[in-house]
Amino acid sequence: MQCDYFDAGVCRSCTWMGQAYDAQVATKQARCEELLAPWPGIAWLPPLTSPESGFRNKAKMVVGGTVEAPTLGILDPAGHGIDLRGCGLHEPDLAAALPVLAELVTRAAVPPYDVPTRRGELKHLIVTRSPEGGLMVRFVLRSTEAVPRIRKQLPWLAERLPLVVVSVNLQPEHKAVLEGEREEVLLGDTLRMRTGAVDLHLRPQGFFQTNTHVGAALYRQVEDWADELAPASVWDLYCGVGGFALHLARPGRSVLGVEVSVEAVASARTSAAGLPDVSFVAADATSWALAQETGPDLVVVNPPRRGIGADLAGWLEGSGVPHVVYSSCNAVTLVRDLEAMPSYRPTRARLLDMFPQTAHFEVVTLLERTGVT
């Protein structure tokens, strides 16, 4: 993939830009196998690749510049805006929406937040596109001062973009945090993210994989493994909006998802409407698991980069759960967690290239209890 921003030196976020894509995937696969080498005999499935460009369903843009000439992109070392509206990682329809949103900033007279002077209102624009083309647009503001003007311009915006959800997030503090806790929805409720036969409903503060193609493939892979194992009961820990849980739902199978985000759990419950054996709990995954006396037939974990940690790994080690599926976005912490669970052996694994042009990747492993300690 060729990128004018990278070539000009104005954005180096994609550290592997310019490398042949096949070589990127091969390097990631080699790294995975190196890290998991202490567990010989893993059956590695072929890597699941992504389009090299146009794969991101979400744009997280720092807003800079002025009301008359806003920039959507990143900040330079001095805190001034660099416009990246033409970033080739975004899905084409998502990229096409960014100039319209920049025009809205001008029409609604929303001053971009200026980091050096700590003045202004609009800090970030976060835009997500559904597989069907609908958009969720979130304005991250320092205060509510500009909300009436944004609300007034929504009819104009709706004539130009396929809006499904529009919200305002308040982040009043001067620090490098993408968003705050408070959200005010101006339009709609949830954005439908269809993956295969499952409809997931995304609320403004919910998490969804930023690569729809690879995210759907990840769900299918875990679905295939679970169908082969045929568990009667499943826990989906760190379940987010319920992606794994809803894909693993089957008649007669009890599925329970646990997620600390109340918003994500609300989304998951919306998606699970009509499924009698699927439920969700808003709780810390580790604390909740440690409070349970018995475990299910299968546990799926999809933790953040820090991994599941010693407490949850220790609980799984002593739980008697026969199989665990571990979906990891950080293979280093995956290895650390595996070392804390010596009774489990990874039997199958697959690299999923969720993040082309960077060193990051997802790896999913199927763990089988061996009884060896």
Rank of each mutant, 00 (worst) to 15 (best):
A273F: 04
A249F: 05
V363A: 11
R129N: 02
L36N: 06
V127K: 01
E293C: 01
L334R: 03
R269H: 00
A313W: 11
A30H: 03
A20T: 05
S287K: 14
V214C: 09
Q292C: 14
A291V: 07
L94N: 11
V258C: 15
D227V: 10
L125D: 05
Y113G: 04
R253F: 10
D311W: 01
T365H: 02
T27K: 11
P92E: 03
A95M: 13
P276V: 06
I74W: 00
Y21I: 08
M136S: 13
L246R: 07
H174K: 06
A23P: 00
C239M: 04
H323F: 15
W315R: 15
L367I: 13
T117I: 01
A249D: 12
V260K: 06
V255Q: 05
V168E: 03
R348H: 15
E181K: 13
N169Y: 08
G73K: 13
L200G: 03
T347H: 04
G65T: 01
T347G: 08
L154K: 11
R182K: 15
R151H: 11
V198L: 02
L45T: 10
D76E: 02
D7W: 01
E121N: 04
L338R: 01
P148W: 07
A69I: 00
R253L: 11
P47H: 01
P47T: 08
S267V: 04
F6A: 14
V67S: 00
P155V: 02
Q221E: 14
P162R: 03
L367R: 11
A217K: 11
R160F: 07
A30Y: 00
A232L: 15
E34R: 09
Q29F: 09
E179G: 06
G252A: 11
A266Q: 14
A310V: 15
M1W: 00
W39I: 06
L45K: 09
A69P: 00
T212P: 04
Q153G: 03
C239I: 09
H124A: 02
A30S: 09
A283R: 14
E223G: 07
R118C: 05
G188W: 02
C14D: 09
L237E: 04
R142S: 07
R118Q: 13
G79K: 00
P51A: 12
Y21T: 01
L157G: 02
Q209S: 11
R345C: 08
